[in-house]
Design a protein around this nucleic acid. Sequence first.
DNA 1: TTGTATGCGTTATCAA
DNA 2: TTGATAACGCATACAA
Lengths: 346, 346
Amino acid sequence: MSTMHDVALRAGVSPKTVSRVVNGEPGVSERTREKVTAAIAELDFRPNPVARNLRTGRTGLVGLALPHLAQPYFSSLAEAIMREAERHDLTVLTELTGGDAEAELALVREHGPYLGGLLMYPVGLSDAQARTVARTVPTVFMSERAYDAPVDRVAMANREGVRAMVAHMASLGYTRIAALGADHSGLPERASAHLRLEGYRDGLRDAGLPWLPELVCEVGTPDWDRRHGAAGVRRLIEAGVRFDAVVGFADALALGALYAVREAGLRVPAEVAVAGFDDLDDARYASPSLTSVAPGTAQIAREALVLLNDRMNGTAPQDTGRLIVADFELTVRESTLGGMGGWGGA
Amino acid sequence: MSTMHDVALRAGVSPKTVSRVVNGEPGVSERTREKVTAAIAELDFRPNPVARNLRTGRTGLVGLALPHLAQPYFSSLAEAIMREAERHDLTVLTELTGGDAEAELALVREHGPYLGGLLMYPVGLSDAQARTVARTVPTVFMSERAYDAPVDRVAMANREGVRAMVAHMASLGYTRIAALGADHSGLPERASAHLRLEGYRDGLRDAGLPWLPELVCEVGTPDWDRRHGAAGVRRLIEAGVRFDAVVGFADALALGALYAVREAGLRVPAEVAVAGFDDLDDARYASPSLTSVAPGTAQIAREALVLLNDRMNGTAPQDTGRLIVADFELTVRESTLGGMGGWGGA
DNA sequence: TTGTATGCGTTATCAA
DNA sequence: TTGATAACGCATACAA
């Protein structure tokens, strides 16, 4: 590893001049610049980022704090973020929090001061803790929960997405649409459930359909997996509730619903339509393939990095957090529209 | 952020003594050590890792280079690695290569010198390039492909896993077992396909079953997804090949097979048994749930970090690479054993 | 336009 | 057992 000093010797100039060339500073004659550039190339000199960081306090490192990685949404998000960060010449340090406030804070204490910025999907953080985080390092949240803190946030169109889904179902003639994944706890960390339920309500209102409490199905856990989705639908069926459609607040719930509906001998979508939220790969590959709301993960990653860049440059408003809601897309598949069946057409 | 200097002033000692205490070096009197420890606590002093790194050249940073993240195996592996790294007090810098040799090398050039070690799932790398990588930074590979280079490697039990799967099927009375995902290219980057095919061959031999070329099904692409799995099985069926079992060399292939088999009106496992490799969540949640080989991801992560630690400490052999093959587990589910159906009980 | 001196926070060397 | 001094590689302030 050659240093600026080596390059300076070789080019017959001072280290400071090399520094100027490397950082594209003005005040270097064309001839000198060329000499230096040549020396840099010959020695394959690459500035030592550690030394630079120690001197300037600036880092090209951004933290990415997620509760998990082995869950489809988070791994897609992480991949999108990393690709986007590359375009911004930023290096990503990924950390797993397990959704635990203590871990979320510990990570910020530990790495915060040495990060240029932080992208976080907070789960356990309180408002006060969120403020602490944002004070430590330029931060952008990518979560559905709103914080009473001056932190930028990029969120999914939870409400609008479900609203559009209900509209879609209503337009196909379904009238008894069940909501799967409702939560009435009011807990802030269940924000996605609350927002999606509001979207459901909006959708019904738009379509002139009545709000029927028996169609609102809680799954009794924040773990939105297929098992709980299936169990929820089984309860509806056993309770004798009549329904001709199910909006799952997550694809995993909807896939469970799909299973339970067909288990009960009902045809999808002829007798019961099913749809989800997330547009996982599994939705496309399910059979019948699952209609779903695609939350715009790529856009979320893109916007998050733009917001973060602003924060890191100081171009962002200081005492207020900005909110960007990503565009969603309604991906209509067989579980609501019928069709030829089979995703395997070679 | 207080520095060693601050702590030294407060404790009435020199910075070097603080350094000794922080690093647990000997040659500090008990009394002094206590004073320093107290000062550290009062000031909430945390050593600046950047300065430390500049001085020592050592980093607590290990790179994790994966082709993708939004694929179940890689996201599980990444999560396992991160959890394990935490236990070793290492910070993980994740990088996506897309499986491209150029990207794999670029990453090493770029970050290599500032990493304490590198965990990589190489895809495009040649033997010579692998040697270059290992020369740049202590490296452990986690791939099925073997390299002619002194690099440690942790691999799945590709061969033994499939062998055991065939034995399992044979023991249930299946005799015409198709292999889905075979590859005859001989390309080193298709090592998993080759090894799994060998395992298939072993399994047949163990069971005294004949090798029938018409049962060996290529999918014609390295992309082992459901679509190609389904297409492969359809081709078998259309060609009139009789088979009573399918071993998919990946769960995705097997899930596609499951679909195509049932599409053809055949019952699983009564008429055709199906099994996969990877033991993804999807395998458990499929219907019928899918028998699969669990490759021991947690163990792979654990062993990889042990090997890497050795390399980083210089405790590893210099001119030779070690190979660890992880234990696998045969997870038997409905797709081979029948049973009650439905994963949604409760 | 170019260079010198200094310091970022830590650890290594060597002397006390 | 302890401390003074220098150095890691770069960038900043200031001088020439």
